[in-house]
Nucleic acid binder design. Structure first.
Lengths: 223, 223
DNA sequence: GCGACTTTGTGCCTGTGTTCACAAAGACCT
DNA sequence: AGGTCTTTGTGAACACAGGCACAAAGTCGC
C-alpha cells in the first residue's frame, strides 16, 4: 500500500545488470507455457540466489503475490518497460571485419529488442557490399540516415576505435558497446560498455592456473 | 624487504579482472618504446583510477620504484606470470555458427597468450570443413586429440549449450567462456564466464532510456 | 469464515571493493 | 652529502553488494 513508485528511481547498477537475465529466463518460461513462477524457480533459471532476485525485483515495485509467486507475463512486461524495450532500439555496427560481420549476421538481437539497421565501415572496398541483407555504408551516409537515438557497436581494430567512437558521438550516439580491445575516451553523458574476449580468457586462465579446487572451499564431496 | 610473497595468495577477484587491462596497456606502451610508467599514466591508459591501480599491483608484490614508477617490461612479466600466460593456452571453440566462425578467424587471441587449436561442431555438414586453417572436428575426435588442459569457448545455439558444456567437461575442461544466451549448470571446480551480447545492449538501453544526464551528477559544464 | 501454509518483501549484518590522503622510500639536483 | 621532490604503497573511512532470516500478506482447503 505504500508508494512503490517512489523508489523507482536509482536502481542499483548490479540489479540493472541482472534484469536482462531475468527477462531472458522469463521469456523462456513463457514459451514453455509457464504462467506463474516463484522466486526460487526463477532464480534457478537465471542462475542467481532467490533472496537476491527478490531484492532486485523489489526495486521496480511489488509485482509478486505472496504465497503464489510472480506472473510471468506481467513481470516480463515490467522488466521490459524498465529496460526501455517497449520500442526497438536501432543499432549501428561499426567496423566490418570478422567480428562485425558475425554480429551483423547474428540473429540473437532481434528477439531481444534490437534491430541492426546500419553497417558502417571506412574501407572503400567494403562500402557498398551487402552483408546479411544490409548495405555497408560510410559515416557520411549514416549521418544522413540516422535521425533517432541509436546504439553503436564498435567492432573496429583497436587503432581505429577511438576515431570511430568520436565520429559516432558526433552523430549523437550516447551508448557504445566496444568490442575493440582498447580504452576509448568519451565525454560525460556517453555510456560505454566493453567486451574484450581475450581479457575474459585471461581471467579464466588465471583461475585455471591456480588449482581452483584449492581456492574454492565449497566443494562438497571432495577430499 | 618484507616477505612480499606471503600475500601472493588470494588476489581479490576484482583485481584479477583488471590485470588483463593493465597488461594490455603495458604491451601497448612497450610497443611505443616506453620503458617506465607511473601509476597515474598507466591508470589513464587502462581506464582506471591511479590509487586503485596501485592497490591492485601491490597485491602481486612491490615492483614499483618510488619517485620513478614501474618498469614496463618487468611489470608486464609479473602480470603475465600471475595470469599464467607464460605458456600458451589451447582453446577449443565449440559451435561453428556465425559467432564461432568469427571467433575462429579472429586474430586477437594469439597475441594474448591463446591459440585456437580445435573447432568443434556436431553438424555432419560442417565437420571436416576448413575454417581459418583448421579442420572442424566432432567431440569424439577432440577427445582423441586433447591431452592437456584446454579452455572451451561455447558458441552454440542456446538449446545446445548445456549438452556441449557437459561433453566438454567430460573431456576434462575446467574453464568455459559461454557466449550462448542461457544459463549452463556445471559441477564445482569448473569455472564459467559468460558473455551475452544482447544483455550488454539491454543494459545500455536502460541507461539510454533514463536520460543519463539526469542520473549522472558529474557533468561539468553542462546545463 | 477461519486456520494453516506458502511465498514475498525487507531489515540487518557481513564481506568486498573503492576512494582518500599521507607517510615512507627512493631518485635527482646542487 | 644533504635537501627537495616525485611517486609508491597502504591504513582508514566509506559505499556497495550479497546473504540470512523473519514478519507480513495473501492463498487455499475445509
Amino acid at each position: 500500500m505504500s508508494t512503490a513508485s517512489a523508489d523507482r528511481r536509482d536502481i542499483p547498477e548490479a540489479t540493472v545488470a541482472r534484469l536482462p537475465l531475468y527477462l531472458r529466463a522469463l521469456v523462456a518460461l513463457d514459451s514453455r507455457g509457464v504462467e506463474v513462477v516463484s522466486s526460487e524457480e526463477l532464480a534457478e533459471a537465471a542462475g542467481v540466489r532467490s533472496a537476491g532476485l527478490r531484492k532486485d525485483l523489489s526495486h521496480l515495485g511489488s509485482y509478486g503475490v505472496r504465497g503464489v509467486g510472480y506472473d510471468v507475463d506481467r513481470l516480463s512486461e515490467e522488466i521490459s518497460r524498465e529496460l526501455g524495450l517497449h520500442h526497438d532500439w536501432s543499432v549501428a555496427i561499426i567496423g566490418m571485419g570478422n567480428l562485425g560481420h558475425a554480429l551483423a549476421a547474428y540473429g540473437g538481437f532481434a528477439t531481444r529488442g534490437f534491430s541492426v539497421r546500419w553497417l558502417v565501415d571506412e574501407d572503400p572496398a567494403v562500402i557498398g557490399t551487402q552483408i546479411a541483407g544490409l548495405q555497408v555504408i560510410d559515416f557520411a551516409e549514416l549521418e544522413k540516415q540516422a535521425p533517432e537515438s541509436i546504439i553503436a557497436v564498435l567492432a573496429t581494430p583497436p587503432h581505429a576505435a577511438q576515431q570511430a567512437a568520436d565520429q559516432a558521438i558526433a552523430l549523437g550516439v550516447r551508448s557504445i558497446l566496444n568490442f575493440a580491445p582498447c580504452v576509448i575516451t568519451v565525454p560525460a553523458g556517453v555510456e560505454v560498455r566493453k567486451v574484450d574476449l581475450a581479457t575474459e580468457l585471461q581471467i579464466l586462465a588465471f583461475h585455471e592456473q591456480r588449482g581452483r579446487d584449492i581456492t574454492l572451499g565449497t566443494i562438497e564431496g571432495a577430499r
